[in-house]
């Protein structure tokens, strides 16, 4: 039998289908953060779990080969910087940090509403998902370097 990283074929096949659904669900939670329970953090965690699912099913080597970890790092820190930038835009437009300068647009209770809050949710979602995945990835890297004996 061929030596391959990760779990069995069944798990891999199921993961291949389900990962996209999980990511989609995470995006849904993030986008509806200002209307329903959840939001940037919860949706971000769901997306990070999708990546973790991939890592568990296919093994670390697969992630190392196909996912550019430093790119995830960059997404994480740039989304945090973006959050601050939106806050500073609040100062520029209405004089207060994180002021909701887009609040006049959209209709209440609809997806297109709540001004900057959905944007902040998206930014936080990106930050949390990438951050959480990179944290777990970094912890698993330790394990590779010095075997757990």
């Amino acid at each position: 039998m061929k030596q391959s990283s990760g779990m069995t074929l069944i798990v891999k096949t199921v993961t291949r289908v389900s990962v996209w659904l999980i990511i989609l669900y995470g995006i849904y939670i993030i986008l509806h953060g200002h209307l329903t329970p959840g939001g940037g953090f919860a949706g971000g965690v769901i997306i990070a779990l999708a990546f973790l699912n991939l890592m568990l099913a296919y093994g670390r080597d697969f992630i190392k080969k196909w996912v550019n970890i430093s790119f995830l790092h960059d997404i994480e820190s740039s989304s945090a910087a973006l959050f601050l930038a939106i806050g500073i835009l609040g100062i520029a437009f209405s004089g207060y940090f994180l002021a909701n300068f887009l609040s006049g647009y959209g209709t209440l209770y609809r997806l297109y509403s709540a001004g900057t809050i959905p944007i902040l949710n998206i930014v936080i979602g990106a930050k949390v998902s990438m951050g959480l995945f990179v944290v777990v990835w970094a912890l698993s890297i330790f394990h590779i370097d010095k075997g757990g004996k």
């Binding site: 944290v135 970094a138 912890l139 330790f142 394990h143 370097d145 010095k146 757990g148």
Partner: peptide
Amino acid sequence: TAMLVALAVRLFE
């Protein structure tokens, strides 16, 4: 918790 787990792993090392 992530910080502590990382420290624990390094201590184990």
